[in-house]
Nucleic acid binder design. Structure first.
Lengths: 342, 342
DNA sequence: GATTGGCTTGACACCGGTGTCAAATTGTGA
DNA sequence: TCACAATTTGACACCGGTGTCAAGCCAATC
């Protein structure tokens, strides 16, 4: 029950293997008559190209993989969904690999993964996408990659959200609701996104003439628990901030929990907002105001960019042109966790 | 910068390719002296077997894939994590493929995916794992598979939780808290797990001498929204049930939201429990009582079972022995969404 | 000493494609 | 009509491994 090979097609059409190869690869310099004859034979035999044979001959597998470091599950699910969509559309398989930013031998692990699967393209999710040594290793191994999320400190292409605008808009919105004491929970210190988002928060305050109170800015790590802990610090302050802006939704959910466990009414006594618009924001009560992060779309575009590059350029340089960077816009999503004060 | 091939090793050791092949595959009938000599050469050259070459020669890629139909994100994340763990341990790549149970040409899509990746093993998550036509296609294509979640109606091995015990224990616990009117939200009618779980609920009521009230049993579909909708039906009843048992956590979260949006206090006025112990249960307020579903472990074991089978048996029969089924036990996890009544 | 058999090793074809280069065919201009 | 170039096609080696089978070697048996 094996499927037809290129030899079967060649026999059926009465031509050489190579000619069949030319036709199925849409190469130039094939006569129309020949092309037609071969295409007919392809259909008759039900031929499907064996990707392994091709990979071996061309020394390019065309397989790609998503490298994650287990950020917020909601974030990952959205991203993964978009990437899968792109891969399916392009008839490509997607490998998954979960690693740890802080693993001692991250590089060896990833290198082994690449050797085991022979992927020749990677999509790097944050925070792994900012790990310089990793990027260098990929360059050395000639493995193409695209990164998710804006990243200017290190080289390589990225596809991501305009974070500065995101946090600027959320902060501005809270200010429009008359909040003056807006607690802010920072992102992971190792991720470049944290710096960018913080800048947006600062800019919005400044632009509205609100003095920046550093004690209202608390370190978080993009996790639920860190959001909860940070909220505890902020809610212990007197006077208590009237709003808390967590720099991602995962932390915002933690803030909501902490507030509710203290009997603080949301949004009557405390407004809460996040960034990302992951699924949990519409599953908790009240639904959380946030900023839409088009992660599905971002994942899709990242996958497409990578795949197209692999398919077109024979030996595409591992690191792309910065002009290929794609920065997406989102928009404020107002829900029930924010309200005007007084 | 290409890595050494088997030819390089052979040259270095002064032996034939085939002998090197024998050593790296740990075949019998190789003299100790020869084995040592080759192993030395392997180390010296830094040789790593090219999986593509092997796959082509043996006509088995050893790649596996996880086929999902996008159930609850929390469920999927846990499962995926365990599977990835197993794959990494066994130095295998994991392909991901997301499909839709109700797609008109599901079979064609999956078949194309298999042809594009040449996976020779699949892990099927529910509900896709109960789709008979799919299983038949996989048998025909000689693709091995393991299913997640108990499934007795269709053939093939599975690894899963003892659902009947799970729902029996949850129901019994609610009864111990003095609840008599326990609303039940069923699982998706197309999934076998729904039947099994429902039986556990019924058994617990009967065993405790509580008459089964069919109007307390509402259809759900394992999604958040369906849980919310079902809760709305149940909470409109008079007298209102004092507890609602949703047959998965995703729906339980929906129930919690619906109750809170009506101002019903949980757990004082309504107890809520689910099954699965996915991450959302500890992110909402109050944390949801549930039954631990060892999905990480289940995923890990499923991956191991599949990989071992692929590695050992050359032409393992696509469908395994029922004796290979692995049924796991979980345990009740009591949190804050349940309380004793009156 | 010749025969038998087990164990170890290597030559060679093959898996399913692609790259190279030369041969065959067609087209062009003088 | 012929020389020459451009286009189309095929023969063959090769990518990196594995399977088959025969040959070489040695000890045990008759």
């Amino acid at each position: 029950m094996k499927s037809a090979t290129i030899n079967d097609v060649a026999k059926q059409a009465g031509v050489s293997k190579k000619t069949v190869s030319r036709v199925i690869n849409n190469e130039a310099n094939v006569s129309d008559a020949m092309r037609e004859k071969v295409q007919k034979a392809v259909i008759e035999t039900g031929f499907k190209r064996n990707p392994l044979g091709m990979a071996l001959a061309k020394n390019r597998s065309l397989f790609i993989a998503l490298l994650t470091d287990n950020p917020s599950p909601g974030y990952l699910m959205k991203l993964q969904k978009g990437i899968l969509q792109g891969c399916t559309e392009e008839h490509m398989g997607l490998f998954l690999y979960d690693c740890s930013y802080y693993s001692n031998n991250l590089l060896d692990e990833v290198e082994e993964f690449i050797d085991n699967t022979l992927v020749d393209g990677l999509i790097l999710a944050p925070p792994i996408c900012d790990k310089l040594e990793l990027l260098e290793m990929l360059n050395r191994k000639q493995v193409n990659y695209i990164r998710i999320g804006p990243s200017y400190r290190t080289q390589g292409e990225f596809v991501g959200l305009n974070y500065q605008k995101a946090s600027f808009e959320v902060t501005s919105y809270l200010i429009r609701l008359n909040h003056q004491q807006i607690g802010y929970i920072k992102g992971h210190p190792d991720e470049e996104s944290s710096v960018i988002k913080e800048q947006g928060y600062r800019n919005a305050l400044e632009e509205n003439g609100i003095k920046i109170d550093e004690s209202l800015m608390v370190q978080g790590y993009y996790t639920y628990q860190s959001g909860k802990d940070a909220a505890a610090l902020l809610l212990n302050k007197t006077p208590r901030p009237t709003a808390i802006f967590a720099s991602n939704d995962e932390m915002a959910a933690g803030v909501l929990y902490e507030a509710q466990s203290r009997g603080i009414k949301v949004p009557q006594e405390l407004s809460i907002s996040g960034i990302d618009d992951i699924s949990i924001t519409t599953k908790v009560f009240p639904n959380i105001t946030t900023y839409r992060h088009p992660l599905v779309n971002i994942g899709y575009n990242a996958a497409m960019l990578l795949i197209k590059r692999l398919k077109n350029k024979k030996n595409a340089p591992p690191c792309g042109d910065e002009k290929n960077n794609q920065i997406f816009e989102g928009e404020l999503v107002i829900r029930d966790s924010t309200a005007t004060i007084k």
